[in-house]
Nucleic acid binder design. Structure first.
Lengths: 220, 220
DNA sequence: GATGTAGTAAACAGCATTGTTGACTATAGC
DNA sequence: GCTATAGTCAACAATGCTGTTTACTACATC
């Protein structure tokens, strides 16, 4: 009697890889539907893993959800800062235009990670201790103090504005523009406008004397 | 035999109010868990309405979801632009600082609407035909052309940056700061930084001659 | 008073998900 | 070859949601 073709067994010598595959699948589900509708069953299906296996790694749905949140944080940090750490020396400041473009590139090429991260931000109750966020703020702070950036800026707020809009933009764009060319164009528009904004602002200062005065006064 | 105390019946002469209550509850659920985990059962519970009633108004879960998305769009438009339409004359440009502050105020006081709207933006496949978004872009465009704003800006992108970060900020802040005072302070920080950004930008132009040149060349 | 509308209450089948458990298999290391 | 680990497969009860249906109640209007 012919034995039915056995499904390929995964290498049980490397449980970590299984765990990673589950987490990766969980990340995809999270990016698609949000954290509240993350189900162990769908994650297992998507990972090509038996549901029982998933429950061996993550005893409850909540455990999986929390582990996935951490995984997202790790992944986004590694993807964005991982290869950068080896490249740049410590005291060198990353050029502003390259930083803006790099972040936008990253977001465009990793919409799932971006989305998952945003979902996380939107649902976290309590303090966010996010490696990626902290590093981003720190880099921006260093930039502000380096003389290249205006010293009077509120680093955390500016970090939030640039980071959130950069990560959200591809999602917004993905819904509008379908072709690769159209998406490239949309990315260029975003980078250009963001650079224009951080270079010159959006208001004509001569037309807003009171506002200018207010900030001049605050600054001294 | 004592009849058990009957639950108060709602006014069946006004089915519209029931519909609104269901939609309001749906909005709250949407803001809490995202669109994928919106359930008729929970919405009905939260609205204090029989599940059967909910199904009378919205035959399927999807119908409720779509109606809720529209409701969110209507509500956010009315809340933000509703009383403004009666106030401002047509050709008057709303001052930039007031506009920034007004949007931030709105977002701070309507975190649920903001959240629901953002969830919508994040999950919509296909073109977003949102009344609120269109009006916002239109107003910003008028501002750009009025002479108060820089004419070289990409209105849609700038609208996206300011709108998304303004609406997302209170959610981010809500997770960080608990007391009312702390939240007020965070709002002030956001408004100040946003104004500073649109007034002056964040870079020191003298330190970025190549960038300045690039934009000068592009502009002519 | 008759009729239609809006809502309540309760049951039902179908389905998916959650955790759990038990039997079984492949593999690595001792 | 034995054993522990990692994973598969299948069944199970409990729970919740969906959508439908039926009987019933309050109310307004004609």
């Amino acid at each position: 009697m012919a034995t039915p073709p056995k499904p390929p067994r995964r290498n049980n010598a490397d449980p970590e890889s299984t765990r990673r595959e589950i987490l990766q699948a969980a990340l995809e589900v999270l990016a698609k539907d949000g954290p509240e509708s993350l189900s162990v069953a769908e994650v297992a299906r998507r990972a090509g893993v038996n549901r029982g296996t998933a429950y061996q790694h993550f005893p409850t749905r909540e455990d999986l959800a929390h582990a996935t949140a951490e995984w997202v944080s790790e992944r986004i940090y590694d993807e964005f800062y991982g290869d950068l750490e080896t490249l740049s020396s410590v005291n060198e400041v990353y050029p502003a235009d390259l930083a803006v473009e790099r972040l936008s590139d990253f977001a465009m090429n990793n919409p799932e990670l971006s989305r998952a991260w945003l979902f996380d931000v939107m649902s976290t109750q309590g303090t966010v201790t996010d490696k990626f966020w902290k590093k981003y703020v720190q880099e921006l702070g260093a930039f502000a103090k380096s003389g290249y950036g205006r010293e009077d800026m509120d680093v955390e707020v500016l970090a939030f504005i640039t980071l959130s809009s950069s990560l959200l933009w591809p999602i917004w764009v993905g819904a509008h523009a379908k072709s690769a060319k159209a998406r490239d164009k949309m990315q260029k528009r975003f980078v250009d406008e963001m650079l224009r904004l951080v270079l010159f602002g959006s208001l004509v200062p001569e037309k807003h004397p009171d506002l200018v005065k207010r900030f001049r006064d605050d600054g001294e």
